[in-house]
Amino acid sequence: MAVNSAVGAFDAVIVRFVAAEVHPFGIVFFRNLFSLLFLAFFLRRIGPHPFRSPLWPVHCLRAVMKLAALVAYFYAVTLLPLSVAIAVAFTTPLFVSLGSILFLGERPRPLRLLALAAGFGGVWIVLRPDTVPVGLGAVLALGAAVGLAGVALLMKVSSSREPALRIVLLNLLVTVPVAFLLCLPVWTTPSPASLLLLAVQGAGGLAAQFAFARAMRLADASLLILVDFIRLPLAVFLGLALFGEPVEISVFAGGGIILASLLLLLRQERKTARQGP
């Protein structure tokens, strides 16, 4: 899980470094292209028919939603301090829980509603809309979190019927050509240095998915949430060291509240699983 968290932080750093040269559409394209190329080494693990699936419409919708979310997130990273962008990214599970209530018919239990209210209160503290005007970066970061929550909800539909590797493969098979078409009007051929960073980003993104899946099988979910939170102090350190971004106490305070709300949501889900719906 620490690998997944570190990759998440350094992913944002790479975006910052290459964004001056490559449009976010291009960053998304190359990131997914390199992920697909590295995934080709694991095709045999998927089975004899890696491209056969009864859920192609679901995979296509999920891929387009993830593409839009990545573009929004990469734009946000160029507009916000690293720590703020990553703190807002932690709200994705909150939107997943809210979406489960609104669209999957899950019961809005009091503890769950309390956790959601606390989590979104943490977002308010991070963004401070009462003192700092809500800019495009904050809107894009929240939009990315909502989009990734939709991706996670669609994952619930397909994860019980298909292996994770096939889901990742089919997602990339849709995302890469769509991202290529999007970046054509703003195409810029990356320099060798930027191309190397994008290759590292693509390999890291794929490794993070494998690491996360492995961690979910080996460790308790509450421990994984705590470990994943290292992304925030790591982002604060990288933002200060590489880009001279100030350390904001409000980011740690709001991020801590978001973390507490996620642990509260996890507790409620466990209680519901024991008691039944």
Rank of each mutant, 00 (worst) to 15 (best):
H59R: 10
A72Q: 05
A89Q: 08
L36P: 03
L79V: 09
L67A: 02
T92P: 04
L39C: 10
R44D: 09
R45L: 15
T91E: 06
F41L: 15
I27V: 15
G99H: 07
V58G: 02
V84F: 00
L37V: 14
F95H: 07
A63T: 04
A63V: 03
S53N: 08
R52W: 15
V77H: 00
T78R: 08
L61C: 12
V58N: 06
P48M: 12
L67C: 02
T91K: 01
L39F: 10
H49N: 14
R52E: 15
P57N: 13
T78Q: 08
L36S: 05
R62F: 09
F74W: 05
A63L: 09
L79N: 04
A63K: 01
I101S: 04
F41T: 12
L94A: 06
V84W: 00
V28T: 06
A40E: 10
L94T: 06
T78V: 11
L36D: 07
P54K: 15
P81S: 04
K66D: 06
V71H: 02
G99A: 05
V58L: 10
F42A: 12
P54H: 13
F42V: 07
V64C: 11
V28I: 10
L55P: 06
L98C: 06
V88N: 03
Y73W: 06
P57D: 12
L98H: 03
T78Y: 10
Y73R: 04
F90G: 01
R44S: 13
P93K: 02
C60W: 08
Y73F: 14
F103P: 09
A85L: 08
A72P: 01
P93R: 01
I86D: 00
R62W: 08
R62D: 12
A87W: 01
W56P: 05
V71C: 09
V64M: 10
R52A: 14
L98R: 00
F103D: 10
K66R: 09
V28E: 02
F30L: 11
S83C: 05
R52S: 14
A40L: 13
L39R: 03
R44T: 13
L43W: 07
L70C: 12
L39Y: 08
A76R: 02
T92E: 11
S97V: 11
F90D: 02
L70Q: 13
F42T: 10
W56A: 14
P50Y: 13
F74Q: 00
A89H: 08
S100G: 15
R45P: 09
H59I: 09
P81V: 09
R52V: 12
